[in-house]
Design a protein around this nucleic acid. Structure first.
Lengths: 217, 217
DNA sequence: TAAAAAATTTAGACTTATCTAAAATATGAA
DNA sequence: TTCATATTTTAGATAAGTCTAAATTTTTTA
């Protein structure tokens, strides 16, 4: 088995690897709030375990074995988030830190039974896809709301920012997963966006918010 | 917050303290599969944190603060065991190791909501009482089955041995929590016991098994 | 394309929790 | 009540994961 620190590095490399073919030491250090020298030490260890491909000064990628572990952790994280929201009635902005602890519970059978207990959910409370017990999942085509044009419509299906303040703001504005929205206006001056939620409510959001809201067309 | 190791020491001292006013270094070492010298180191640390009362060579007791933490961990352990058995359909002999990991998940609100979700259960799958959110619980008067006499009856309400082989054996014999039993015979030679389960099944168990089965009269 | 800047690694140190071996203290049997 | 034994503590070492500071390599830019 792997230590907690190892698991966190693998998960981090996986996430950073989504936007970049190769992940750098400094990216990992920034993401984990640690120092580059600490990262280097851990990279050597993970390379020895054949969980990453690593050459000095050249950044890292996950091996198949490493990716499998990372996806397993993400599966657990998202299933526990779903559990916390759907079964224990937490809000979507409260569950991240708890799931961060729970994702390290080791039993494979536990996760699989939890999955079954909840009816094999496909998405966590933030819209992120939940890998199945074989680690398979598909990432739907989502685009930032900021790329839509006037009169275009779509469904809120994910967020780029998972922090509490952002999620709380969205909740207050009723900008939650599954809601259908239509762009009614885009203000040239600051790129802020006016939009209609479902059929009634009309609201106005900043460019930054629009950038962090993901839409399925 | 306390480290995982600290929590395990506190829980261990609590359990050992049930049968003895003062807990010794060697008892803790045996119980945690560690060395006495390691225990001494940790005792100093816990004493510095005012979680135990400790004087060199004199053994330890928990302070009120230490006991509160220990009971909190036991509450979490037992609630998760209940969850695993009642919601995820695990057998009572499969849940201990998983709960051992889950008991260290820190959120107080999570445990309390879990408790509520399950309807505030009073006992875990092995019959042990679950402390409420204020750490209060009462230990019912239970006696080993081996102390009963012929024709005496009672209800199986707990076990002294929580290991898988013992629990599996009990399950196979239908000697599970809640079953009413009546002693039909006690064999002088080896102190083994013949008994009737509920109204029908008649079985024969060893002295050792009888010693580890707890009965409410 | 060479020097400056940025990124990364190495070297050496610290903390936590553990260990072995030796020393100190307590216990209990003669 | 003293000595042998058992228990406990101290001293010093080790592994994991982190840190700072210095050295090395890569990248950028002039």
């Amino acid at each position: 088995m792997n230590t907690l620190a190892e698991e966190n590095y693998l998960k981090c490399i996986y996430h950073l690897g989504i936007d970049a073919a190769i992940v750098s030491t400094n990216q990992i250090a920034a993401s984990l709030n640690t120092k580059a020298s600490s990262v280097t030490d851990m990279l050597k260890k993970l390379a020895d375990k054949a969980l990453i491909n690593y050459t000095r000064y050249q950044g890292v990628t996950l091996t198949q074995a490493g990716e499998k572990i990372a996806v397993g952790i993400i599966r657990k994280h998202r299933l526990w988030e779903y559990f916390l929201v759907e079964k224990l009635n937490f809000k979507w902005d409260q569950v991240h830190d708890m799931a961060e602890e729970m994702e390290h519970i080791s039993s494979q059978e536990l996760v699989d039974r939890l999955d079954e207990f909840m009816g094999f959910p496909k998405h966590d409370p933030h819209g992120d896809p939940i890998p199945d017990c074989n680690g398979r999942f598909k990432t739907p085509e989502l685009i930032p709301l900021s790329t839509l044009v006037v009169n275009q419509c779509g469904v809120i299906s994910g967020v780029r920012d998972h922090t509490s303040p952002f999620l709380q703001y969205l909740e207050k504005q009723q900008l939650t997963i599954g809601k259908k929205i239509t762009i009614t206006d885009i203000i040239e001056y600051d790129h802020s966006v006016a939009l209609k939620i479902e059929t009634d409510k009309e609201i106005h959001i900043s460019r930054e918010v629009a950038n962090n809201l993901l839409i399925a067309l």
